[in-house]
Simulated assay, not measured.
Amino acid sequence: MGVVIRTAGEGDRDLVVRLLDEAFQDDPVSSWVFPGAEYRRRTHHRLMAAFADAVFADGRVDLTEDGAACALWLPVPADEPAGDGPGEGAEDVPALIRAAVDPENERVELIARLTDGIHPSGRAHEYLWMIGVVPERQGEGLGTALIEAVLDRCDREGLPAYLEASSARGKVLYERLGFEFTGRALDLPDGPRMWPMWREPRTP
């Protein structure tokens, strides 16, 4: 039986935040932003909540029917960089996120600024901001199913897609789905490497 996927609504917010918090507790980038397991358990969920709220407002959250996996997508218009995240304008969004999530932690703000700096601009595309699968369900193909559902639409509409892989394992998975490393890695200060990846739409 295939994976059943639906678009999450505001009523799914708490589920999505819990899912992301659990899925990314041991992620290299999350571990860099929130060093120390106990500190991360106390604080990490606030950043996941900020991300989820931003995407609920300006993008789309896809959720497996069983609640075990979700993907956060943002549409980026042509000639408009992803900038400081959804809903940006005159406001300094990374600074606002830091103030709301963990004011004493400069890495909350820095990760947003650094990823903004490597985000390609010029062409409309779908941005896979985050994809999470609860640890006990990883390896079952849930993440692949979530991504392929959107990539199929991208192919039909002629839209590229973009993401930042936060682990070498994830990079290999995304390469299997047609993403290619842009050639400019992001090495976080005293932290892990991230791989920006771009996928051109496939034609029939």
Rank of each mutant, 00 (worst) to 15 (best):
G2M: 10
R6S: 06
G9R: 11
E10M: 08
E10Y: 08
G11C: 06
G11V: 03
L15A: 13
V16P: 02
V17C: 02
R18G: 05
A23R: 09
F24P: 01
D27S: 02
D27I: 01
D27E: 13
V29F: 02
S30V: 03
S31Y: 00
F34H: 03
P35F: 15
G36A: 05
R41M: 00
R42D: 00
H44F: 09
H44W: 13
M48L: 07
A49N: 03
A50R: 01
A50F: 02
A54C: 07
V55Q: 06
V55A: 07
F56V: 03
A57T: 09
D58C: 09
D62W: 14
D62S: 12
D66E: 04
G67C: 06
A68R: 15
W73S: 06
W73H: 13
L74Y: 15
L74Q: 08
L74A: 05
P75F: 15
P77F: 14
A78G: 10
D79V: 04
D79R: 10
E80L: 04
P81H: 12
A82T: 02
G83R: 13
G83F: 11
G83V: 03
D92I: 04
D92Q: 06
A95W: 01
I97F: 11
I97N: 00
R98P: 04
A100D: 07
E106N: 15
V108G: 06
E109N: 08
D116W: 13
G117F: 02
G122F: 12
R123W: 06
E126V: 08
W129D: 13
M130P: 01
V134M: 04
R137Q: 06
Q138E: 11
G143K: 15
G143C: 11
G143N: 09
I147C: 11
E148T: 13
E148I: 08
A149I: 10
V150H: 05
D152L: 15
D152F: 15
R153A: 05
E157M: 08
A161L: 03
Y162K: 10
S166M: 01
S167Y: 11
Y174F: 15
L177M: 13
F179E: 01
R184P: 01
R184T: 07
A185M: 01
L186S: 12
D187N: 09
L188P: 04
G191M: 06
M194R: 05
W198H: 03
W198N: 02
